[in-house]
Design a protein around this nucleic acid. Structure first.
Length: 308
DNA sequence: GGAATAACCTGGATGC
DNA sequence: TGCATCCAGGTTATTC
């Protein structure tokens, strides 16, 4: 499932291939891939064709390709926004390559160095989407995210917080938000308006590393515990990024269709019944809303005030 | 206003 | 073998 490291691997793969490229063709095979786009498939195809991509940027799990304006040297005013959902992939293919099994959209771009390339959006579970979206100024005037110096983000990304690896991430705001949340810390970590880019896998891993029970009330975490959690979040995300992300199956791959290797370093997620790497106690799985949390019942003691 | 829950969706795994 | 059911989970609308 693509979380911050997986999306960053995709962004970094796309950047050299699409920066400076002209969109010469767009083919929407499945309109469900445009659920975030306000217009029709035909309008999306027509609006994007003929535009020049000037970069590849990311905040949290959202990535976007800023588009050049018609004004010479003018700042981009809009972008193609992509969210991979649970199973979305952005793949680089030859323009005439056979369709992927779950291909939803194919863009053909003409790059001044690489020539024509196919940028394929493939998505098995159709939770992912593409959209054309206006860029709006960031509230803190800092760059919108990784891969862009411009202080702007797509409008539909503006509401989410920066991710913990962002240089402009506001640690004080993060701690303040935790202190005001009367909810389980696991649930709060998945709230993209508190800190973005974290999903079920890395939330479980960071909580294991910080020895915090997933049902601990966020507002009752001490400043020291909140700082430790933030440090572990960053550590887990950076390690996963270095390993190319986490792949359990063919659902997450980079732009070349290759898997990441972080799954071999997981300590809690998906390891139900296996011994904890610290103390040997079997990892436990508990239901959490419509998903699950994995933790060590010995290292991550459930506090008496634990939220449910 | 904040918190919790349901719904969206597909395919692999499991049970009968 | 074939069918039914469960499960995975990011985001958002709805409900409490």
């Amino acid at each position: 499932m693509p979380e911050l490291p997986e999306v960053e691997v995709v962004r970094a793969g796309l950047e050299p291939a699409v920066t400076g490229a002209l969109v010469v063709g767009v083919d929407v095979h499945d309109a469900r891939a445009l659920t975030r786009h306000p217009g029709s498939s035909a309008e999306f195809e027509a609006s994007l064709t003929g535009r020049r991509i000037v970069g590849a940027a990311r905040r949290g799990k959202f990535l976007w390709l800023p588009l050049a304006t018609s004004t010479p040297h003018g700042d981009p005013a809009d972008a193609v926004v992509a969210h991979l959902g649970m199973s979305g992939q952005l793949l680089l293919r030859a323009p005439a390559a056979a369709p992927e099994r779950h291909e939803r959209v194919r863009m053909i771009v003409d790059h001044p160095v690489h020539g024509e390339l196919g940028v394929v959006f493939s998505d098995q579970r159709t939770f992912g989407s593409l959209a054309l979206d206006p860029l709006v100024p960031t509230v803190d005037a800092a760059p919108g995210g990784w891969g862009t110096p411009a202080p702007s983000v797509p409008a539909q990304v503006a509401h989410i917080a920066r991710d913990p690896l962002d240089e402009a991430f506001d640690e004080r705001r993060f701690r303040t938000r935790l202190g005001r949340k009367d909810s389980a810390i696991k649930r709060v970590l998945l709230d993209q308006t508190v800190a973005s880019g974290i999903g079920n896998i890395y939330a479980d891993e960071a909580l294991w590393a910080a020895r915090i029970h997933p049902e601990t009330s966020a507002r009752l975490l001490s400043t020291r515990a909140a700082n430790r959690l933030l440090a572990e979040l960053r550590g887990v995300l950076l390690k996963a990024l270095a390993e190319g992300g986490t792949s359990f199956d063919a659902l997450y791959v980079n732009v070349n269709g290759e898997s990441g290797y972080f799954s071999r370093y997981l300590h809690s997620y998906g390891r139900t019944g296996e011994p904890c790497d610290r103390c040997g106690t079997p990892i436990k799985r508990i239901a959490f809303g419509n998903r699950s949390s994995h933790f060590c019942p010995r290292c991550q003691r459930k506090p008496s005030h634990a939220s449910t």
